[in-house]
């Protein structure tokens, strides 16, 4: 660790942008497509899930492991510093502290968000007996908008999501700016200032996208959306094998009422996380 401190820190910096930050950007844009219609969103989700059984490999390799690396190292970095905003209330210093705070918020938010929507792991028994009773795994990919809308019904959840999304966006946008200094992309004070403006524009844009997606999700007409989603799913059925159809069961929202029994119960080892996240960087 100490011998390769430089390389590790640079990887930390890089992982925040690619893949974690890039992923988050795509994720928020995908989610915002619900503003067009639940159908558009559903088709985007289906496209992701068309990867089928390799999806989890992609997710772990390009999202979760980098994210965990970024987050864990981020905690180590935070522990090595001593924020002093009260003595030096300067804009750069405030951002230094916010970067760390937003990183921590983002990390907890993402952990909760992945549980809340996807339950962390995709073993059916675990999902049914642990995740779902605890309020997790609420997102159903083939009923994307409607299940998401239901998950976000509560105002408190929406507020938490808004805080989480904004933390993620700030962390990424500010992280891009500091990354450019760390790697020596923008060097002069003037260049750093210009890069700062660009980061602010990016951050504001992503905040609009993220909050727009959240707002769009929460305003979805669940019944109507579900019908459309089911229709889309039905149109896909022809191209799927019976095994695939069976595996799809847990990706569908088959609860017709909140307290209805889940109709299928077999194991599905596929992690299905379409999701999330953002990523910290210094």
């Amino acid at each position: 660790m100490t011998r390769n401190e430089f390389i590790i820190r640079r990887l930390h910096s890089l992982s925040g942008l690619v893949p974690v930050g890039a992923y988050m950007t795509v994720h928020l844009l995908t989610n915002a497509s619900v503003l067009d219609s639940p159908a558009t969103f559903q088709r985007n989700v289906n496209q992701i899930h068309s990867l089928g059984s390799v999806l989890w490999v992609v997710e772990w390799l390009f999202i979760f492991l980098p994210l965990l690396f970024h987050a864990v190292l981020g905690v180590v970095i935070i522990r090595g510093g001593l924020p002093n905003v009260s003595s030096y209330p300067l804009s750069g210093n405030v951002r230094y502290s916010l970067q760390r705070a937003s990183g921590m918020v983002a990390f907890f938010f993402i952990m909760w968000h992945v549980f809340h929507m996807h339950g962390w792991f995709h073993f059916d028994g675990y999902l049914k007996s642990v995740a779902e009773p605890l309020g997790g795994a609420q997102f159903k990919p083939y009923n994307a908008a409607s299940s998401a809308a239901q998950a976000l019904r509560s105002g408190a959840v929406q507020v938490l999501y808004a805080i989480g999304v904004l933390s993620c966006v700030f962390h990424l946008a500010n992280g891009i700016w500091t990354m450019g200094i760390t790697w020596g992309v923008w060097v002069s004070p003037a260049a750093q200032r210009r890069a700062n403006y660009a980061s602010i524009v990016f951050g504001v844009a992503m905040s609009i996208v993220g909050l727009g997606a959240l707002n769009g999700m929460s305003r979805v007409d669940v019944e109507k959306a579900r019908q459309i989603e089911d229709q889309i799913y039905d149109s896909l059925k022809g191209s799927k094998t019976p095994e695939e159809l069976e595996r799809d069961q847990h990706k569908r929202d088959l609860h017709r009422t909140a307290d209805a029994e889940h109709p299928t119960a077999e194991e599905s080892p596929t992690a299905d996380l379409v999701l999330p996240d953002t990523v910290p960087r210094r």
Binding site: I77, G80, G92
Partner: peptide
């Protein structure tokens, strides 16, 4: 302990 420790607080 090199440059990688810098946190860009710019104080």
């Amino acid at each position: 302990g090199g440059i990688q420790i810098c946190g860009n607080a710019q104080n």
